[in-house]
Design a protein around this nucleic acid. Structure first.
Length: 852
RNA sequence: GCGAAAGUGGCGGAAUCGGUAGACGCGCCAGCCUUAGGAGCUGGUGGCCUUUGGCCGUGGGGGUUCGAGUCCCCCCUUUCGCACCA
């Protein structure tokens, strides 16, 4: 028997056989369908974007609409954001909560290739299915402002953004060694290479020299870093971005060629204090300066090494524990500090993409250089003495320190320089600056800052993306597509499989690429690469409020009213990629005068990961859960409550089938409580439990405590404890077996509404409220004076061990409490025959006798 | 290796300006109701002991304190991110 049918039969039997009252059974499917229809018909989830008095932009990361449909991991993310949005709405904000679909990209394209259906045919069905599921889950989306990145009316403006960057000189085409995934047959951004492998298919990433479009995000490194100081984001996310940007302070030092020559090698170092110990130089194999140094005798050895390195894939090469290898060029350079000649080597542990592609090697004080020097018998010269190792009165210029088994890397104020000319004797942590200044005077160095961040390669030799809006003319060169000619529509190609040669699928379509030059009218060729999916998602939130405007990307009034985003909720996996790119694009648009803010998200919070049976949900593990099954059997409200209750939202949790029973009962009990209250009212017991219409003092206190707790919890996304507080409250009003009163259940219905919107709409209506609850209910306020009772029960300890509790008037002084405590049997027993040396009293919290 | 977070009952998790550890829920136990129960109701539920009482207990070991899950030091484990970044 199917599960839903089984439940339905059980429910019917139960209603028939065990219920004495006439109250209707809670049928989630019925309730939910009715209220979803009501919201849609009455457009309750569509704030008036022009007139909203108190705008609140509640954003969640838009999904990739997969063919499998929404899984509970998606829904977990959306539900948390939705609870927050509904809560903000009940608190009086005009909440704008739009939905969209990130439907371009390799993911869709690969799936389309696999099943042999064109993505243009596939995507609309997927979007329809996602939409159905999201509506069924009761997410409060404004469906009149959706975004689909594959819609020409959207990517027209993605292309427009490219043009703005191009005009501002922030997009440039250059030949570059790029990460190349041999399986996906496309270029990958550095961010998409995980430990040398493709983030999507896990293939080992190779390198290829191609002409690619880059966005100059590195020009914004420092701003992207600085703003992290003040934006209200999860600390872990900010740390991840900081690490990714990877600022290091140091110096660029120049080593001239030993032979008479103007040429010099620049190296970046964070340890200029150790330059007197730089006993050799190392170039990256790809460094163009290599040829300047290679002497005839070494030519063959060098060529052999370069060939061997080129054959290594990135995973092999970047293994930190790999034995260091390299080759001597035969050339020499001059250490700018000592004036001595040092040999110039080539080694693959030096990377071309960081710093200058060359390093000064200080084997005594850098572990990698140390290993290299040991392997090839190069000199190791200590120039930093460990703390306390230099005798007082000794001349630091003459001191020598034994070389250990590893490099000595400490360099605080306690370590001092030795063998460093006039800088000997200075603390290592301070000498670097002085050395750089002295070298700078001779034009041999500068203090510099280096970043790990690279420019963003946005070119993709794939099909399923927005064409990059550029035309190449033999006469005029690179010509941007005029803005009025946008969009450059992606044509429907039946053969769009990528090929090994790095030539994009669109390059096979002459209809697409043969164009007239917009400037001279001559024959020209359209760019056939498409742009990175991350560009689509870098600005979608700017589009939502302006989807009604077809003549501009962002309407200034709408943008001013609704942006920046008030709360952004999304997964941690986007901590560096999407979040950094969207900050960058926003910053550029700010500088160009298109938006007034430079940070797009006022507040960002990551949600945790939903796992199942101890591991991340994935198709390969076979532990993916579809929400449809649970919504069908228990209803969306129960399922939402379960997801929000299973653990702290920001940390995620384990999805277990049995756990849903708790929230299921809770919904049922809330339903019962409201009906019991109404029945009692109808039966004339209207104000049962309180003659004067006031709540019982204990219940009232519990209510105010609950309001305080849940208001704080829902604002902080602590949904599990918020729901627990509501459960406690329900337990309290049910405690003595009488029917709950209207004044007790009404606030419960309002406070539960963000989590269980359909059920609460229904109950709100039954209680006589005007629909929609979200438009007419007022979030309850607590009264601080009603949070505490007149008397408090406080623990009494003897030597820190609990020996009893006593009830005393609130604010009672130490003497009063002590007097009462001494009456307590358990306390007295432990004070017999011992001397009380001291009493610790924390008003309204505790009393502790210190004895013995 | 570096960085970040975390380690609490059978389970998910509460509680950190230091102040009754285990809220809330699952599961389990007992009772009630029922022809029946993956239904409902009531009560119980950290471990141990010589059980009107007491001891132990928040990964392990030290420390500070009248008092430590919470603060400090050392160690172990797990998860995640980065990883030859000069």
């Amino acid at each position: 028997m199917s599960r839903p049918l089984h439940f339905a039969i059980m429910a019917a039997k139960q209603a028939h056989l065990t219920r004495e009252s006439t109250e209707p059974m809670y049928n989630p499917t019925d309730v939910e369908e009715r209220w979803q229809a009501f919201w849609e018909q009455n457009r309750t989830n569509e704030p008036n974007l022009n007139e909203a008095a108190d705008p609140f932009y509640n954003l969640m990361m838009f999904p990739y609409p997969s063919a499998e449909g929404l899984h509970v991991g998606n829904l977990y993310a959306f539900t948390g954001a939705d609870v927050h949005g509904r809560f903000q709405r009940l608190r009086g904000h005009d909440v704008f909560q739009p939905a969209g679909f990130d439907a371009f990209g390799i993911h869709s394209e690969n799936f389309a290739l696999k099943v042999g259906v064109h993505p243009m045919d596939l995507i609309p069905g997927n979007i329809a299915n996602f939409t159905r599921q999201l509506k069924r889950a009761g997410i409060m989306y404004d469906w009149t402002h959706t975004v689909d990145t594959t819609d020409p009316e959207y990517y027209r403006w993605t292309q427009w953004i490219f043009l703005q960057l191009y005009k501002a000189g922030l997009a440039e085409k250059k030949e570059a060694a790029v990460n190349w995934c041999p399986s996906c047959k496309t270029v990958l951004a550095n961010e998409q290479v995980i430990s040398g492998r493709c983030e999507r298919c896990d293939s080992v990433v190779g390198q290829k020299i191609l002409s690619q479009w880059f966005f100059k995000i590195t020009e914004f490194s420092q701003r992207l870093l600085d703003n992290l100081e003040w934006i209200d984001w999860s600390e872990t996310t900010r740390t991840a971005q900081r690490n990714w940007i990877g600022r290091s302070e140091g110096a660029t030092l120049r080593f001239r060629l030993a032979e008479e020559s103007d040429e010099a090698v620049s190296v970046f170092t964070t340890r200029p204090d150790t330059i007197f110990g730089a006993t050799f130089l190392v170039l990256a194999p790809e460094n163009p300066l290599v040829d300047s140094f290679v002497s005839g005798a070494q030519r063959a050895a060098v060529d052999e090494y370069l060939a061997a390195t080129a054959a290594l894939d990135l995973v092999e090469r970047k293994k930190a524990d790999k034995e260091k290898s390299g080759v001597f060029t035969g050339g020499w350079a001059v250490n700018p500090a000592t004036g001595e000649n040092v040999p110039v080597w080539i080694a693959d542990y030096v990377l071309m993409e960081y710093g200058t592609g060359a390093i000064m090697a200080v084997p005594a004080h850098d572990q990698r250089d140390f290993e290299f020097a040991r392997t090839y018998g190069l000199p190791i010269l200590p120039v930093v003495a460990p703390a306390g190792s230099v005798d007082e009165g000794a001349d630091p210029a003459q001191v020598s320190v034994a070389v250990g088994d590893t490099a000595f890397v400490e360099h605080s104020v306690d370590e001092i320089l030795i063998n460093s000319g006039s800088f000997s004797g200075r603390p290592a942590s301070q000498a670097g600056l002085a050395i750089v200044e002295s070298l700078a005077e001779r034009g041999l160095g500068d203090a510099t800052v280096n970043y790990r961040l690279h420019d963003w390669c946005i070119s993709r030799q794939r099909y399923w993306g927005p064409p990059i809006p550029v035309i190449y003319c033999e006469e005029c060169g690179v010509v941007p597509v005029p803005e009025e000619d946008l969009p450059v529509v992606l044509p429907r190609l039946e053969q769009f499989k990528p090929s090994d040669d790095g030539i994009a699928p669109l390059a096979k379509s002459a209809d697409f690429y043969e164009v007239e030059c917009p400037d001279c009218g001559g024959a020209a060729r359209r760019e056939t690469d498409v742009s990175d999916t991350f560009l689509d998602s870098a600005w979608y939130f700017l589009r939502y409020p302006s989807t009604d405007f077809s003549d501009r990307a962002m309407d200034p009034d709408m943008t001013r009213r609704w942006l920046p985003v008030d709360t952004y909720i999304g997964g941690e996996e986007h901590s560096v990629l999407h979040l950094l790119y969207s900050r960058f694009i926003t910053m550029v648009l700010h500088d160009l005068g298109h938006v007034e803010f430079e940070e797009p998200y006022k507040k960002f919070r990551k949600h945790g990961l939903l796992i199942r049976n101890g591991s991340k949900m994935s198709k390969s593990r076979g532990n993916v859960v579809s929400p449809d099954q649970y919504i069908g059997s228990h209803g969306a409200d129960t399922f939402r409550a379960y997801l929000m209750f299973l653990g702290p939202y920001t940390e995620g949790g384990d999805f277990r089938d049995r756990g849903i029973a708790g929230p299921h009962r809770f919904m049922q009990k809330v339903w019962d409580a409201v009906h019991a209250s109404l029945e009692a009212e109808a039966g004339g017991e209207a104000e049962a439990g309180g003659e004067d219409g006031r709540l019982d003092e204990n219940i009232e206190r519990k209510l105010h405590q609950t309001i305080k707790q849940i208001t704080e919890d829902f604002a902080d996304l602590c949904f599990n404890t918020g729901i627990a507080a509501l459960m406690e409250y329900l337990n309290a009003i049910r405690a003595d077996g009488r029917a709950p009163r209207r004044a007790e259940v009404e606030p419960l219905v309002i406070m539960l509404a963000p989590v269980a919107p359909h059920l609460c709409e229904e109950l709100w209506g039954l209680l006589g409220g005007q629909p929609s609850l979200f438009d007419h209910a007022v979030w309850p306020e607590y009264n601080a004076s009603k949070l505490v009772a007149d008397s408090v029960r406080i623990p009494v300890q003897v030597n820190g061990k609990l020996r009893g509790t006593v009830e005393v008037p609130r604010g009672a002084n130490a003497d009063t409490v002590r007097e009462v405590a001494l009456e307590e049997e358990g306390v007295r027993r432990h004070l017999e025959g011992v001397e009380v040396r001291k009493t610790i009293h924390v008003p309204d919290r505790l009393l502790n006798f210190v004895v013995g």
